[in-house]
Design a protein around this nucleic acid. Sequence first.
DNA 1: AATTCCTGCAACCGCGAATGT
DNA 2: CACATTCGCGGTTGCAGGAAT
Length: 288
Amino acid sequence: MSSSSHTNNGLKKGQWSKEEDELLKAYVTKYGEKNWNTVSKNAGLNRDGKSCRFRWCNHLHPKVKKGSFSKEEEEKVLQLYTKFGGLWSKMAAEFPGRTDNAIKNFWNGRKKRKRERRGLQVDDELNCNVESSLGGSSSQQVDDLQEEEFNIPEKNENNFRYSIGTSGITMAMQSNLPPLPQYPQIPPPMKTQCQMSESISSYKSGSLESMFYTPKNLEGSDVGRVRSSTTNLVDEKGKKPISLENDVEANHDNLMHPADLCCFHLSYHELMNIFFAKCHFQISLLVY
DNA sequence: AATTCCTGCAACCGCGAATGT
DNA sequence: CACATTCGCGGTTGCAGGAAT
């Protein structure tokens, strides 16, 4: 993108000059934010109407806040993402001072870095290979993620390896587990729409995200298949694959609320184990 | 000091929805 | 009702400047 480039109809493209900003600001302040094509003509700007609108809405509007996101703002973005998914304009509507474009840039920037660090292909994320978590390579991967994203200190390192990251909490238990602590009894899990037929507690490891944010459509609804090797998550029609990352980020509507967890025969001990180990993390971190 | 790499972010593009004629 | 125009959104690109080598 060159600051001096032009479109094929002679309109200017690229970076805005101070003079152009002043012209646009003066015009919009006087005549208001409408009919952007006439703004570009009448304000003496050799710019596309869309470009004028974008410049005003994202930079010149007096309510636009510039600069990097504070810690509080980062947390707010996270909250809004869990609420709206990738609907940037809706997020911006509840985020005074920040535009949809700014929020989108912030989010995509983080996501890009995260992916590059992990060195994962999207296809890899389609697979939640239960066995491989015990192997070593993938636990190294989650360790890296853990350190880089959240800086979580290891506890009981000889017995547990767990991590919280994009695809949720991954936990690989090794063979010499200590006895589980005693927790108050809870009623047996209820069977609901998913009708998982086996106890998920029999897994040695897996992605906790699949427990909390579970696609309503789990191909085949067959725990045996899930356990044996690969979990294929698909959309409502059962055709389009859903990556674990996209479970939350792109297919928010297809996800079950954590409150629907009762559809699984999930081991209470296993859940408690994870919660007590990492209780200072909010579940919302799972989508980060 | 020069070069390469990385990151943030401004801006463009295509598309669908809304509105006007 | 049909078509044209405008608007707004989300995805993507690529520049600029700082950091690392």
